[in-house]
């Protein structure tokens, strides 16, 4: 067995180790993406609103 395949086999516990790490990456990754997307959306909404109010004040 090659060294990489040997390592990936995790001493016969590959399914357990990789599923635990995969699940962690998925959960933490999804949380990070959702948090950043919410921030960008909130900032865009606030900026658009501020610009709209500025226009209204001018007219």
């Amino acid at each position: 067995m090659s060294a990489i395949a040997d390592w990936a086999a995790m001493g016969g516990y590959a399914g357990w180790v990789w599923s635990a790490w995969g699940l962690t990456a998925l959960a933490v990754g999804a949380l990070s993406v959702l948090t950043v997307r919410a921030r960008l959306a909130a900032r865009a909404r606030l900026k658009a609103l501020e610009a709209e109010l500025k226009d209204e004040a001018r007219s």
Partner: peptide, 22 residues
């Protein structure tokens, strides 16, 4: 993540406040 989420809420509250004022 926590600081980003706080900034999101601050921006949301500010937008809501501006809408209320309008």
């Amino acid at each position: 993540l926590a600081l980003t989420a706080m900034r999101t809420q601050i921006a949301r509250r500010r937008a809501d406040m501006l809408l209320r004022r309008r």
